[in-house]
């Protein structure tokens, strides 16, 4: 999105801090309802991040499907299955938790140190020149529609079959 530079940076820092705090809340809140709402905050922030990176269709799909469907479904699941369980669920540190924390921190640190070392700008000149031929007169949503109906047609249909099978399976499992 073509915003002025300070506004863009401010939005990026704001969304990043919301993402960091919200995902910490998803993992570390003791009440699952609070962590489900925190997940909703994270998903909304990710959708705004997609808008910042020029992908409006994916942002709309994220907002509709993740926030509107998946998060509401998870909230229903939490509300159906609440018990007096979260009092025992307080995070007392065990050996497994410490090992997991160490492993995840090492994954994160190795990724963080790898990302600035890679020369992304060397890659961009190898991919840019053959895209000049492509037409760029239509908007991005039209581009996605054209791709979905021409060269990604078979995966699109397979996705619909998978969704149908998953919904029927969910009804069969949850019924009784």
């Amino acid at each position: 999105m073509d915003l002025p530079e300070p506004l863009h940076d401010f939005l990026l820092v704001f969304l990043g801090s919301c993402l960091v705090l919200g995902s910490l809340g998803v993992v570390f809140f003791t009440n699952p309802i609070f962590s489900a709402f925190s997940l909703g905050l994270v998903l909304v922030c990710i959708s705004l991040f997609y808008i910042l990176s020029n992908s409006h269709f994916v942002a709309a799909a994220q907002l509709l499907i993740y926030v509107g469907a998946i998060n509401v479904l998870i909230l229903f699941a939490v509300m159906f299955m609440n018990g007096s369980e979260y009092h025992q669920d307080s995070h007392l540190f065990t050996v497994g938790g410490g090992i997991t924390l160490m492993v995840c921190t090492s994954i994160f640190v190795s990724l963080i140190t790898t990302i600035p070392d890679t020369s992304w700008y060397g890659l961009i000149w190898t991919t840019r020149p053959n895209q000049i031929i492509e037409q760029d007169l239509i908007s991005t949503s039209q581009q996605i529609g054209v791709h979905l109906s021409t060269d990604f047609f078979l995966p699109f249909e397979l996705i619909s079959i998978i969704l149908l099978a998953a919904l029927i399976g969910a009804i069969v499992v949850a019924r009784q």
Binding site: A61, I65, A69, I70, I74, A166, I171, V173, A174
Partner: peptide, 15 residues
């Protein structure tokens, strides 16, 4: 996103 929607329909049903 579509696969995640299918997973989020199956998961709470099993749970």
């Amino acid at each position: 996103i579509a696969i995640a929607a299918a997973e989020a329909a199956i998961g709470p049903a099993i749970v």
